[in-house]
Computed example of a mutant assay.
Amino acid sequence: MTKHSQETVIGQITSVFGVKGWLKVFSYTDPKEGILEYRNWTLVQNGNRIAAKLEEGRRQGQGIVVRLKGIDDRDLARSYCGADITVQTAELPELPEGEFYWHQLEGLTVYTTDNECLGEVDHLIETGSNDVLIVRATDRSIDQRERLIPYLPDQVVKAVSLAESTLTVDWDPEF
């Protein structure tokens, strides 16, 4: 999703589960079960948008399984595999001061503490130890390199300004 979007992706339907229309879901929320807090989903698949209502869901092993309203057989459920699950950003809970959702960071212009433009946050990835900003070059960048910058507030990430669409990092441009 772009930074101007009114919705954000919170997961993806990966496969069917059982014969009664249940679906396996990969959740991007933290904790994983957080995806079950949202009842009104929009499924986005191959450019199509489908409104969906979460009827029930639960943890199943290492993953999450859900039942959506109106989906009650395996064949119909299979047609939703691969769909992204989005919700309205207005439904997301407020975060404490200094914390941000990934979708808020995507699209921000990244500057070093010396005011050198490194590019724009394309997306983030989770590595286990910390999240990583994937910064893609823009026409204003000092070069055309893609950079992977650890998202470590106060250590590497010095400032985030959503109002100015900027993120300031203490990062050597040679990396």
Rank of each mutant, 00 (worst) to 15 (best):
N46R: 08
N46L: 05
G47W: 02
G47Y: 05
N48T: 09
R49V: 00
I50H: 09
A51P: 03
A51H: 09
A51C: 04
A52I: 02
A52E: 02
A52K: 08
E55G: 15
E55Q: 15
G57F: 05
R58S: 14
R59M: 12
Q60G: 06
Q60F: 07
G61N: 03
Q62C: 01
Q62M: 08
G63A: 00
I64G: 03
I64Y: 05
V65H: 00
V65F: 01
R67I: 00
R67K: 15
R67Y: 00
R67T: 07
L68E: 02
L68I: 03
L68N: 00
K69E: 15
K69Q: 15
K69M: 14
I71Q: 04
I71M: 05
D72P: 10
D72W: 14
D73V: 01
D73N: 15
D73S: 11
R74S: 14
D75I: 15
L76S: 14
A77C: 08
A77H: 09
R78S: 14
S79A: 14
Y80G: 04
Y80I: 12
Y80F: 15
Y80N: 06
Y80C: 01
Y80L: 15
C81M: 12
G82F: 01
G82V: 01
A83V: 04
A83M: 05
A83E: 03
D84C: 07
I85D: 02
I85H: 05
T86W: 00
T86L: 06
V87G: 02
T89S: 10
T89M: 08
A90D: 08
A90N: 00
E91A: 13
P96N: 12
P96T: 10
P96L: 10
P96S: 14
P96G: 04
E97L: 11
E97C: 02
G98S: 04
E99S: 12
E99C: 12
F100V: 13
F100P: 10
Y101C: 10
Y101R: 12
W102L: 14
H103T: 13
H103C: 08
Q104E: 15
L105M: 14
L105D: 10
L105W: 07
L105K: 12
L105G: 09
G107Y: 04
G107A: 07
G107D: 01
G107L: 06
G107K: 00
L108D: 02
L108R: 00
L108H: 03
T109R: 13
V110W: 06
V110N: 01
V110S: 09
V110H: 08
V110Y: 04
V110A: 04
Y111R: 07
Y111T: 11
Y111C: 05
T112F: 08
T113Y: 09
T113C: 06
N115M: 08
N115L: 04
E116Q: 13
E116D: 05
C117N: 10
L118F: 00
L118N: 02
G119W: 10
L124E: 05
L124Q: 10
E126V: 14
E126Q: 15
T127G: 15
G128T: 03
